[in-house]
């Protein structure tokens, strides 16, 4: 059953990355806030949940929720100094924050076990479901993706979502219409953080083992690739991008079996393709595979 197992693994990863990509999409696609350190939120969710469950013995549900909250709080914290600044500053501060979180995980061995990582992370209901556990976990992830997709769509369709798009396209105008753009930016970083933290926590409990290696800047670039290829300001685009990029990323592992090329070079080649894909999409199809949908109001009045 290795192929079946692999397929289930791949689909579970689609789900986790779809959540991760949707969180970035909310910030970048809707609000135009360039976040180059999204992996920090993912890592915070993963570590918070894993450590609370492994070291403090708390229930997994509590761990996941705490992971979301920690990550959401970090979003607020990060938005604070930059909320009145241009997007260039967002880009660099988020990039740097991502590195600081990784350094923390690497250096604070008393808490995070440093480079050795956190092992034996419990999985939800693991004693109850034996044989088909990975199918169970996949269904669990699928349900979470569906719920998050629904909630995010409700948000982006609401006046809140409209405010985000206005900040993205014309921040001055939003201010002149009385919108508290700074507060909205903090809110959107918090919500993006919650979702990325959720993705991270689910990732940690799925992998059973996490270390700083899982949270390299590479992860941020991957989800950037996803929303650029899939399409921004469109949650379906983020999901499609997650599927496309993740399929490419995982499938190239098999190329190594047929082509005599080291794993390091393979991963370099893979990232070159993703980098070039980002550049080409932005030049030739900037809206991505699925474009932002025009919001119309059918005649109801």
């Amino acid at each position: 059953m290795p192929i079946a197992n692999f397929t289930i693994y791949l689909f579970t990863m689609f789900g986790i990355y779809a959540l991760f990509a949707m969180s970035l999409n909310l910030q970048v696609g809707y609000a135009g806030l360039v976040n180059f350190g999204q992996v920090a939120f993912f890592a915070l969710g993963a570590y918070t949940s894993a450590l609370l469950v492994v070291k403090a013995g708390l229930p997994i549900a509590v761990g996941i929720i705490a992971g979301m909250l920690a990550s959401g709080f970090f979003g607020c914290l990060l938005a604070w100094p930059t909320k009145s600044l241009k997007s260039d500053y967002w880009a660099i501060t988020t990039l740097a924050a991502g590195e600081v979180i990784r350094l923390f995980a690497l250096n604070e061995k008393w808490l995070t076990e440093g480079p050795f990582g956190v092992m034996n992370i419990p999985q939800p209901l693991e004693g109850l479901i034996d044989k088909y556990y990975n199918i169970f976990y996949f269904i669990f992830v699928l349900i979470v993706v569906a719920v998050v997709y629904m909630l995010l769509s409700m948000l982006t369709d609401s006046p809140f979502g409209r405010n985000l798009k206005a900040i993205r396209d014309a921040e001055d105008l939003s201010k002149s219409l009385g919108k508290n753009t700074q507060k909205i930016k903090v809110q959107v970083m918090a919500i993006g953080g919650l979702v990325a933290g959720l993705a991270g926590a689910i990732f940690a409990h799925y992998m059973v083992y996490i270390s700083p290696e899982n949270f390299r800047p590479l992860e941020t670039f991957l989800i950037w690739g996803m929303i650029i290829v899939g399409g921004r300001a469109n949650n379906r685009g983020a999901i499609l991008g997650a599927v496309v990029i993740q399929t490419f990323y995982v499938s190239t592992r098999f190329v190594g079996n047929y082509v005599p090329i080291g794993s390091d070079l393979m991963s370099a080649a893979r990232m070159i393709v993703i980098g070039l894909l980002m550049v080409s999409f932005l030049i030739f199809r900037p809206e991505g595979l699925l474009r932002e949908r025009k919001k119309t109001y059918p005649d109801e009045v």
Partner: peptide, 10 residues
Amino acid sequence: RAPERMTVLE
């Protein structure tokens, strides 16, 4: 100022 990707009604 006119948001690029928002309709007139929006």
